[in-house]
Design a protein around this nucleic acid. Structure first.
Lengths: 210, 210, 210, 210
DNA sequence: TATGAATGAGTCTTCATTCAT
DNA sequence: AATGAATGAAGACTCATTCAT
């Protein structure tokens, strides 16, 4: 018998659930989205049975991990928008922090399965929309401030963000290397940049997972 | 039992071998490096047995696909260096064309297995070294020309290249979106860019697969 | 993922494990060590998955079957030594009973794979050493009693024993035929035998699996 | 198109056939009756295609190897009967030489497939009958000479012979060990042996492969 | 409720046999 | 006629998911 989804879980059950999501996140990052369920269960310190009680199949686990991750992106974006003195600073901060959000993007990018799941999940789409909304506002702000070139849209920034999430197999150097790539991108985004970009600004809507 | 690698293949066998590599490339791009061998065989129009006769295991198939791909990168890099009037133009062309070279990078990036295989393959390492050599010369040239900022190395450019190879799930828009990201990066690489990059220039050696 | 070998198995799991070993013994005797794992699993009344959970590969199953069998040989040898009035009688009994121990020997003799496995297994080597120890004592005893010829060693007796384990394709007659061969051997082992044996007595050590 | 079986093969074809049989014999001895056909073909220095032209399937190859081997046994038995001064000496010689005839017996003993093939092959049965005929005469002769115990039959001797063909995994020692086991058996077969054998003498007919 | 045992479908890989060169 | 390439059926093994304890 499965609990009514609306009934809040008992405290220990919730803790259990959280452990599993955290473990799955770790393991997905380490070994990709194809790890055996048993490995995830072990990492969470539970049996497979328990895992399956919480998440009836792999799909729903991926979904849970991903939603949580998106939630964090939203939080981060809100904080950046609220706390930074200028929109440009908020964008730079978002680009810098995005590496911590790696997982969701990786899941969407690497695993056709995960992609399909996320595409069809309304909650995820709402998170995405929310993020793009914030970003859009920031981009306009930064352009108004005169710090950001006018031929980019929120979508362009989101794409650069996503690119930085690629998992380069460089071990120690990975952070430095990506920091530098980011710095190049930021310079390229500045209002002083010269060559016009091809096409038209990319919007958040353009990036809806398909 | 596989034929002595030094004996030239019979005409039909060679044709088959090429078809298999081409099919594998397609299928790896479409579905990642974990596709059933059967799928690859079918796509190549042969039975699994034939596939296994040519490539005794998945590993050696990945290797073959990857080597061929690296070879193409080397060719492309040489051509860019030889044909473009300036080093800067050659680099821009390389960055623009890199998308066609997606597969090797994806394999190295996405699949721990593939990564390990490539890491241990001498031929691949030689291709890599060759590419980095050309790129290094181009970067120095572009810096001497005054078109490229002086605080980047060949490794930095290679990283930007790799980032552009990410397989964004955008379908039609994918090309435009990446063209724009590339344009941002190119602007960021120009000699006129302002903020100094963190750390030190990344060299080709820094990027050896580990 | 297999349970920690030190954790005692759940009751049902242990029962299952025993069934599998018993089934494997039967099937190995009937059809040799190359039978499909599926056949063994079916005979044990379980699915292949269960078989593989208990024995991660064919090797470890062979090992388990073989160890259990050796254990029985040791037990039998001890009982013979303890219960028979004379050492000669104990040896005769061992030779007579050895047919029941057929499997271990057959595995070692018939299958290069099995042979290699047993050779490298310490537990098996200990069983073997124990058996040879008992046999050595019996042989000396029987020689002291004046019933056994003095130019044979424990190894010689063990070899005769092994020879009797050959699986002659005779069906009904098999037992009689081997009983008679055994009786011939026993007569040949008596102290009254005439022609000296070639070489030197074979020891247990001489027969270590190589 | 396959040659009429009655037409004698052309000289090179015959040589070919002989090479294959010789190679198969070697490989069967080394690796058992389950070796890949390709391995046999390679050892014979031909392609699989050629092998299959001569022997339409594994069955007929096993048969050919086995027949040739039986032929040699017959020859050897005839020679022993003709050349030795006494029947007892001929039997001893046969027992001593039997190790060279190992293969046929091993095939019959080790491989259920081979067993079935030989059982159904008339030629093989004729060879067997011929051998048993010679042996029977020798046994009667040796008993008449007073050298062999009277309670054994040709079948008993054949069984002892077969037992000696077991392939003990002892490497260097193997010959000595079996020579000694044989000597014990010979002593057990002498007219002076004491304890009566169980049952009745085993005849050649008793040993027909079933 | 938590656990981990059992199941079997799915994939990899080998090899007997057939067929094109 | 000889060769070795191609094929697919068969067996090994893994792992998602279900179920007994």
């Amino acid at each position: 018998m499965v609990a009514d989804p609306d009934t809040p879980l008992r405290a220990d059950a919730r803790r259990n659930r959280d452990q599993i999501i955290a473990a799955a996140k770790q393991v997905f990052l380490d070994q990709g989205p194809d790890v055996p369920m048993e490995v995830i269960a072990r990492r969470a310190g539970v049996g497979v049975g328990t895992l399956y009680r919480r998440f009836p199949d792999r799909e729903s686990l991926i979904l849970a991990v991903s939603r949580r991750n998106f939630e964090e992106v939203v939080t981060e974006a809100r904080a950046a928008a609220a706390e930074e003195p200028t929109a440009w600073a908020a964008i730079v901060r978002l680009l810098q922090r995005s590496r911590g959000l790696k997982l969701s993007v990786q899941l969407a990018v690497l695993s056709p399965l995960a992609r399909a799941i996320l595409r069809d999940d309304e909650t995820t789409q709402e998170f995405r929309a929310e993020i793009m909304l914030i970003l859009d506002e920031l981009v306009r702000g930064a352009q108004a401030e005169g710090s950001m070139r006018r031929d980019v849209g929120a979508g362009d920034v989101a794409v650069l963000c996503s690119l930085l999430l690629m998992d380069l197999p460089l071990e120690d150097l990975s952070d430095l290397v990506l920091d530098r790539a980011l710095a190049v991108m930021i310079d390229g985004l500045r209002a002083t940049s010269q060559s016009p970009l091809p096409g038209r600004p990319i919007t958040g809507e353009d990036l809806r997972i398909r």
